[in-house]
């Protein structure tokens, strides 16, 4: 008792007047964020500046020349006919992925929200591909989608001759979308399920007393109430879809032709396979602009389509 008191008194030293409580707290704040802030400056902001700087240059790695060319790379961007195809493929891939992913996730979430015995086991199984190594998952699908692979084997047992999935333009695109959807739909499913479980039961009870049929309950109560989650996950999913690389690299290498060459894959090819670092940087700027515009547009949309926000 006495010691504790003595200690308290001893610690009652005055700090120099400059180090007020507020100043000491500010210092602590800066120290706490320093690693993150330095990291962002070094690994995001400076590279972002550099990528813009590079995009204004013609960079020949073999000749070791780095020449300022102004908007030359951007003119090339507009004139690049392959890029048009690439952007088309990117749009189809992203749109297909988001639509399929969101609807399947919602369907699965509604199913998992039913009161059924053993539902937790289904939840675990639907979620399991999320934790399977991405490249492992892609390899086994690549194996299944071979001309003489498992899927066509099964189809043949039903008397159907399947296509060479990864070697035809339409089916190749469908394949990369589907492989990616099954890999990650479990994440959105879990988010939707949590949102569904957050809808107050009383609302459904009130709707049943009002005599609303099940589908109407879903459309008029469930959907509006989970719309913030739908918006949020759709942003994450779209931005994520623009970053899909491994699946394309492993399954199709962008082919056949350019049919599955999405922007990130094209960027990788230009910069790291053909060593066009200047043009690759220009493509990076384009990717950045697309992500920024999409994110911004969706935040704007939030005001119109999201009915409810907590």
């Amino acid at each position: 008792m006495a010691v504790a008191q003595e200690n308290a008194r001893a610690e009652g030293r005055s700090f120099s007047p400059f180090w007020t409580i507020a100043r000491r707290d500010s210092l602590a704040g800066f120290l706490f964020i320093a690693p993150q802030l330095v990291g962002i400056i070094a690994f995001v902001l400076i590279p972002l500046g550099l990528v813009f700087w590079y995009s204004l240059h013609e960079w020949n790695v073999l000749a070791n020349t780095f020449t300022y060319t102004g908007g030359q790379n951007y003119r090339m961007l507009i004139e690049d006919e392959s890029l048009l195809e690439v952007l088309g493929a990117t749009a189809i891939f992203s749109a297909g992925l988001v639509i399929l992913n969101m609807s399947l996730a919602l369907l699965l979430a509604v199913l998992l929200n039913q009161k059924l015995a053993g539902i937790a086991i289904f939840r675990t199984l639907f979620f399991s591909p999320v934790v399977v190594s991405l490249v492992a998952w892609t390899i086994v699908w690549g194996f299944l989608l071979q001309k003489n692979g498992g899927i066509n084997g099964m189809l043949l047992m039903l008397g159907i001759e399947g296509p060479n999935w990864l070697r035809e333009e339409t089916t190749a695109m469908i394949s990369v979308i589907v492989v990616q959807v099954f890999k990650n739909v479990g994440l959105n499913m879990i988010l939707f399920l949590a949102a569904l479980q957050g809808v107050p039961k009383e609302l459904y009870e009130a709707a049943r007393i009002d005599g609303a049929p099940a589908f109407k309950q879903f459309r008029r109560i469930t959907l509006p109430l989970i719309s913030p989650t739908i918006l949020l996950t759709s942003i994450i999913t779209i931005v994520g879809s623009l970053q899909v690389f491994a699946q394309i690299a492993v399954l199709t290498q962008g082919g056949p032709g350019l049919s599955t060459t999405v922007l990130v894959y094209y960027l990788y090819q230009q910069a790291f396979q053909f060593h066009f670092f200047g043009y690759g940087s220009t493509l990076s700027i384009l990717l950045f602009a697309i992500v920024a515009i999409l994110t911004f547009a969706q935040w704007q949309m939030r005001k119109r389509i999201v009915f409810y926000e907590s």
């Binding site: 008191q5 308290a8 008194r9 610690e11 009652g12 030293r13 005055s14 700090f15 007047p17 007020t20 409580i21 507020a22």
Partner: peptide, 27 residues
């Protein structure tokens, strides 16, 4: 208690002026 800063005036606990002390040093 020392959880909010004192803009002006004097706060004494016992004989000590404690305006700029941390809560832990105010006993």
């Amino acid at each position: 208690a020392g959880l909010e800063t004192i803009t002006d005036g004097t706060l004494k606990i016992g004989d000590r002026r404690v305006n700029d002390l941390d809560p832990k040093d105010r006993d």
